[in-house]
């Protein structure tokens, strides 16, 4: 690993930290959203699904631009965070976390929703006849049955956050150890014509991405069907 500079290692570590925290937050936020989307019959399930899927389609530049404005001193979120004494979120690690939660939301929600839908009503009805409360039934019946979905969703969320670039470039401010993740570091190497360093770090990212996806597909050969 001493082929990588300290800056590269710092960027990799930051990337892993960001992706881990975002995955954990999305497990907490994404699960109820996916559960609701999988089971609700309301007419606005369609619009809600569309909103959740938006980051799949939106260019990162759109997301980055909106976040920069909304989290800025004149934006609603920026004014809220300033009132709360947190300061402004752009150029901070937690700003990146929030941006990435939006950016990776569909990668958590979609596989979970598919997994919950596959569980179906029957096991939960059975649980209810055995006097399990809905919450009880959720944790003891739905979650274990949807476990492979949780795994797929977590891996995809983690991997997608690692691969994030445009949004981070737009709101991060490129601060070493705080917002300079591996993808940005590679971009800087290329811009500065340091192709050798770019090659090394890129190779690490390539191998990582391949191994993650390989694990996903080898372990669960039908994972591609659930997503």
């Amino acid at each position: 690993m001493n082929m990588l500079s300290d800056g590269d290692l710092q960027a990799l570590w930051l990337t892993v930290r960001l992706a881990t925290i975002v995955t954990m937050i999305l497990l907490i936020i994404g699960t109820p959203i996916a559960w609701w989307l999988a089971r609700t019959k309301t007419w606005w399930k369609g619009p809600a699904s569309a909103v959740v899927a938006l980051p799949l389609v939106l260019p990162p530049s759109v997301l980055g631009f909106y976040l920069l404005v909304v989290m800025g001193p004149n934006g609603p979120v920026g004014q809220l965070t300033q009132t709360l004494g947190i300061g402004l979120l752009p150029f901070t690690f937690w700003g990146l976390v929030i941006a990435s939660v939006f950016y990776s939301l569909p990668f958590m929600v979609q596989p979970l929703k598919t997994a919950f839908e596959a569980v179906g009503d029957r096991p939960l009805e059975v649980a209810a006849t055995l006097r399990a409360s809905p919450l009880d039934a959720f944790f003891t019946v739905a979650v274990p049955l949807a476990a492979p979905g949780f795994l797929t969703a977590s891996i995809l969320t983690f991997a997608h956050t690692v691969g994030e670039f445009g949004v981070i470039l737009m709101i991060g401010g490129n601060l070493p150890g705080i917002t300079r993740v591996a993808s940005v570091q590679i971009y800087d190497h290329v811009e500065a014509l340091e192709y050798m360093q770019a090659h090394r770090l890129s190779a690490v990212m390539l191998i990582f991405s391949f191994v993650v996806l390989l694990a996903l597909y080898m372990w669960r050969p039908n994972a591609n069907k659930s997503y």
């Binding site: 920069l68 404005v69 989290m71 800025g72 001193p73 402004l88 401010g173």
Partner: peptide, 19 residues
């Protein structure tokens, strides 16, 4: 200091008030 990708991006940080 915060770093913009190029000089126009830098101006954008200032224009939005984030810097």
């Amino acid at each position: 200091l915060v770093y913009g990708e190029n000089i126009a991006h830098t101006a954008q940080f200032v224009q939005t008030g984030n810097a």
